[in-house]
């Protein structure tokens, strides 16, 4: 089996790579938690890219039902078709459309399935998927067909911890918490995005960034995506590295709340 070692565009910590490989070998879903902006969703893309596999994303919303991921039986369409004598009305299979999970099961080769933000859905949602994720199969009563995974997909699940997940579900997962990257790892991540960034600017920007994050008054701490946007702004405007820590230009890119900006102005230097 191939192994995940990070990808060109994604820098993963040793622990994260370990967790991904453990999940793949044990064929268990990998549950990823972490602060917003630590690249939870990006991870699945990176794995798909690194292993050269197709990525299927199932975005969970508050209204998503477990059934939606398996299949949808379009009764109304069938009714309409039967009215006008459309062809193949007696073929129920024609009106059964597979959801994302079904798609992943029936794929011709192993795919990566990302169940994004599972905590957005109803409290019982994870429980409804236990069997399907465990056995990698489900039954469609309308057609009497059992959909079984041809190749067990690699399942990545992300959660923002908005809701707690049921124990029975957690027991079946491999869990990894993406810690906020430390300075060295962050420098590495930034270099992936800006291969020829001025070293001085990078050091200064990181210095300012981590100082801001450490301020206890800041409510919404800036994250990886924010520092990358900020650096883009700094580079684009050609800001002198000496000014970065002292003045923190383009602060609005890093902090999104008025009270955070005020807090920073009071606390800075």
């Amino acid at each position: 089996m191939s192994e995940f070692r990070g990808s060109q565009n994604y820098v993963a910590s040793q622990e994260l790579m370990g967790a991904v490989n453990i999940a793949m070998v044990l064929q268990k879903p990998l549950l990823i938690k972490g602060e917003p902006g630590t690249g939870k969703t990006m991870l699945a893309e990176a794995i798909a890219q690194a292993l050269n596999k197709q990525l299927i994303i199932w975005n969970i919303k508050s209204t998503t039902k477990a059934q939606d991921g398996l299949y949808v039986y379009d009764v109304v369409q069938r009714l309409y078709d039967s009215q006008f004598g459309g062809e193949g009305v007696d073929d129920i299979a024609k009106y059964v459309r597979l959801g994302k999970l079904g798609e992943a099961f029936t794929a011709q080769e192993q795919v990566i399935l990302l169940i994004d933000e599972i905590d957005k859905a109803d409290l019982e949602f994870p429980n409804d998927l236990l069997w399907e994720l465990d056995r990698m199969e489900f039954y469609i009563p309308e057609t009497g067909e059992t959909v079984t995974a041809k190749h067990r997909p690699v399942v990545i699940i992300t959660s923002n911890a908005e809701k707690e997940l049921p124990d029975a579900f957690l027991r079946r997962c491999v869990f990894h918490y993406i810690d906020f990257p430390d300075k060295e790892l962050m420098a590495e991540i930034v270099r992936v995005h800006f291969p020829d960034l001025d070293e001085k600017l990078l050091t200064q920007a990181l210095e300012a960034f981590y100082r801001i994050r450490q301020l206890p008054q800041i409510k919404k701490k800036p994250s990886t995506s924010e520092i990358i946007d900020w650096l883009r702004a700094l580079v684009h405007e050609g800001v002198d590295p000496k000014r970065v820590v002292k003045e923190v230009p383009y602060l609005g890119v890093l902090l999104k709340k008025n009270e955070d900006m005020d807090a920073l102005r009071r606390a800075w230097r």
């Binding site: 370990g18 070998v25 044990l26 869990f175």
Partner: peptide
Amino acid sequence: EALDKGLHRSSFTGFYHLCRCLLVKSE
């Protein structure tokens, strides 16, 4: 099963991370 498959990579750190991945489900 994971230990049997050598997922701890015969290192103590690897063993620690393996245990944590599989046994702990919340940060």
